[in-house]
């Protein structure tokens, strides 16, 4: 369960990135966040994986106030949150398999454990045939699926997807959306920030619209509308 409580983030005083945001996201929810570029979507998500801290207010993740999170507890917190981005963030000199395994290596898992989980998750995202390919050798959609696999391999409670389909063609976009829904069905909370109107309208899930750092609309079966 995630709670944003009167959260403001002010980089410069004349245009705050977030202003008095109050938000509650239940476990296993699928939430889409929409808004123009610079509306504050990314800032909102960054606070969840503690890349940014609010200027005012509190962010709770399972009763822990992330405002008070100590630096040394940060890694432990981040392992509970998977992240995917528009630019995939795969390491070009590692194969897709190695990229996925990397997330487990840094968590100190054993090699046997890593191999098993990597194969399993790559199978789920449909990349078991491409495990030894390098990111440069596969399509954008496949790269994003590998990134998704990496985000999920440590079994996070929450998946944060910041414009995951921004660089993808419609078919790949569709595939990624299907995967996100599947992941959500498995029990992972999904928080998706996107510009893709068609997708949002088709999803028929909760939509939160952000405008100039404030929540403009929050609908249980929302449409893309800004």
């Amino acid at each position: 369960m995630i709670i944003y409580e009167n959260v403001s983030k002010i980089y410069s005083s004349d245009s705050p990135a977030l202003m008095d945001v109050n938000l509650r996201i239940e476990e296993r929810e699928f939430v889409t966040i929409v808004g123009a570029s610079g509306a504050g979507k990314s800032t909102l998500l960054k606070m969840l994986y503690a890349e940014e801290r609010p200027t005012r207010g509190n962010v709770y993740f399972h009763r822990n106030n992330l405002v008070n999170l100590k630096n040394r507890h940060l890694p432990q917190h981040r392992r509970q949150i998977g992240t995917v981005f528009q630019d995939f963030k795969l390491l070009p000199k590692k194969t897709l398999g190695e990229n996925v395994a990397f997330a487990m290596e840094v968590a100190g898992k054993s090699n046997a454990e890593i191999q098993k989980a990597t194969n399993q998750i790559l199978d789920i995202v449909g990349l078991s045939q491409k495990i030894d390919k390098y990111p440069g050798e596969v399509s954008g959609g496949e790269q994003q699926r590998a990134a998704l696999a990496r985000a999920l391999v440590n079994k996070p409670k929450v998946l944060v997807a910041d414009e995951p389909t921004g660089n993808l063609d419609p078919i790949s976009t569709w595939e990624i959306m299907q995967l996100l829904l599947k992941i959500n069905e498995f029990g992972t909370t999904v928080i998706l920030a996107t510009h893709n109107k068609g997708m949002v309208d088709k999803l028929q899930r909760r939509v939160i619209s952000i405008n100039k750092g404030r929540i403009a609309r929050d609908e249980a079966m929302g449409k893309y509308c800004i």
Partner: peptide, 13 residues
């Protein structure tokens, strides 16, 4: 880039 990803996936300091 590697460091950025390590932080995102929760590598300890």
């Amino acid at each position: 880039k590697e460091i950025e990803i390590m932080r995102l996936v929760g590598a300890s300091n």
